[in-house]
């Protein structure tokens, strides 16, 4: 069932039908391509992305009175989409649950951490990579890591906005981002090696 807790925490606005449609068209629809790309990158499936997108916009309109006109519509929509993915889509599709942070923490508490942080990945190797390689490296990350990279690097959300979208503290956003980037760098390094860069 769709969780509306995040919608209930805010004061409801009251809009006329005309205002609802205007807000939907002028504030929600301009973000539809970004939303679709986000949905596609977290589901990794075109049909699922379409379903998730439709579901998100349906909920956005249904609960539009929780949205305050003139505030950050894009972040609001991304939050609905993310919640929809976690609450419904991931369960329905029997995707693996949240990543096991214990494994990650064990790794990051090990002596290998500094090695990763300063790994020798040449910038010129990165420049020669093609989109598919970059895409594969990103898609290979666990979805929770993929999400923070998408939100920050592709969609340009601030740490504070990401914190609200993901319902986690800013410190956690930043640590997850740090870990995600280290993992992505390792993936890209593997590709760079396969391309002959040393």
């Amino acid at each position: 069932m769709f969780s509306i807790f995040f919608l209930m925490e805010e004061v409801q606005s009251s809009y006329t039908e005309e205002q609802k449609h205007r807000i939907f068209e002028s504030e929600f629809m301009p973000h539809i391509d970004a939303m679709y790309n986000f949905a596609y990158r977290i589901t990794y499936d075109e049909d699922s992305a379409k379903d998730l997108l439709q579901d998100t916009y349906y909920k956005a309109f249904k609960y539009i009175e929780s949205f305050h006109e003139g505030t950050n519509a894009k972040a609001w929509l991304f939050r609905i989409l993310k919640n929809g993915f976690i609450n419904e889509f991931r369960k329905k599709n029997k995707e693996p649950s949240m990543i096991d942070y214990k494994d990650v923490e064990t790794y990051y508490n090990s002596d290998d951490v500094n090695e990763v942080m300063t790994s020798d990945l040449r910038v010129d190797a990165l420049k020669d990579m093609i989109g598919d390689e970059v895409s594969n490296a990103l898609n290979a990350l666990a979805v929770d890591f993929r999400i923070v990279i998408i939100l920050c690097d592709l969609e340009g959300f601030t740490y504070e906005e990401m914190s609200k979208i993901l319902d986690i503290p800013i410190g956690t956003v930043r640590s997850r981002l740090h870990r995600a980037r280290n993992l992505l760098r390792e993936r890209l390094k593997t590709y760079a090696k396969s391309m002959g860069f040393k």
């Binding site: 679709y36 790309n37 420049k127």
Partner: peptide, 25 residues
Amino acid sequence: ELAIKNILQTKLDRKRVPLDVVEKI
């Protein structure tokens, strides 16, 4: 990190949502 951020922004395809999906919405 800047180079990785840059390739993410420049080398990943940005899809446009199909029109039939917009209509369904």
